[in-house]
């Protein structure tokens, strides 16, 4: 299945969801739940909490399908953003502090090998992101990756990298500005 076909089918299913079609939501769930559950699990590190958040994510997709604008976002990116936001909100509201791993270790697990069919979407854009991250200082890029994947706060990231908080903020902010300039170039 080509990237456009997959994207088109998900977008079409979202149209049906907006019209109140539960079967369409089930189809979307079948296509995307493993990816979104993986994202929730990575951020929360707790199966039971990740399951709660996953439920919340698809209820949100059901409620907000009519606001999805395919001119501005791809369907999978839109759903990934919902999953990450819900998982990060749950994480922030949870009193339990997470075990912290050095950023290098987290980075090693996150090496993107070729995975499932979802990856075909937006191949060019992702290629560009990879190239632009390459242009950053390695530790800045690693901090940005770790922040995105784990939903970690500046403080957690600073602890993990064993640098002062101000230094971590500076790494990430400068990295983001440079990244933005590169992505727009």
């Amino acid at each position: 299945m080509g990237a456009d076909a997959n994207r088109g089918q998900l977008a079409a299913a979202l149209v049906r969801v907006a019209a109140g079609d539960r079967n369409a939501l089930r189809i979307i769930y079948q296509d995307t739940s493993a990816k979104l559950f993986g994202i929730c699990l990575r951020i929360l590190r707790d199966r039971s909490q990740a399951e709660d958040v996953l439920q919340d994510v698809y209820v949100t997709v059901w409620r907000k399908a009519a606001t999805f604008d395919p001119e501005r976002a791809s369907p999978i990116t839109w759903m990934v953003a919902i999953a990450r936001n819900r998982a990060i909100d749950r994480l922030r509201s949870s009193a339990v502090s997470r075990r912290m791993e050095p950023i290098e270790a987290a980075d090693a697990v996150s090496d993107p090998g070729p995975t499932a069919v979802e990856r075909v979407e937006l191949a060019q854009q992702r290629q560009r992101l990879a190239e632009c991250l390459e242009e950053l200082e390695a530790r800045h890029a690693a901090a940005i990756r770790a922040a995105f994947l784990d939903g970690a706060t500046y403080e957690e990231l600073a602890t993990r990298a064993n640098v002062p908080l101000g230094t971590m903020k500076s790494w990430i902010r400068r990295g983001l500005l440079k990244l933005r300039a590169c992505l727009e170039a």
């Binding site: 739940s33 493993a34 399951e51 999978i76 993107p112 499932a116 937006l122 854009q125 990756r145 994947l149």
Partner: peptide
């Protein structure tokens, strides 16, 4: 969201129960 979304590719998919 659109441009950083690709970083999520690095996360392993896990089937929910």
């Amino acid at each position: 969201e659109e441009r950083l979304g690709g970083l999520a590719d690095a996360v392993a998919a896990v089937s929910p129960p």
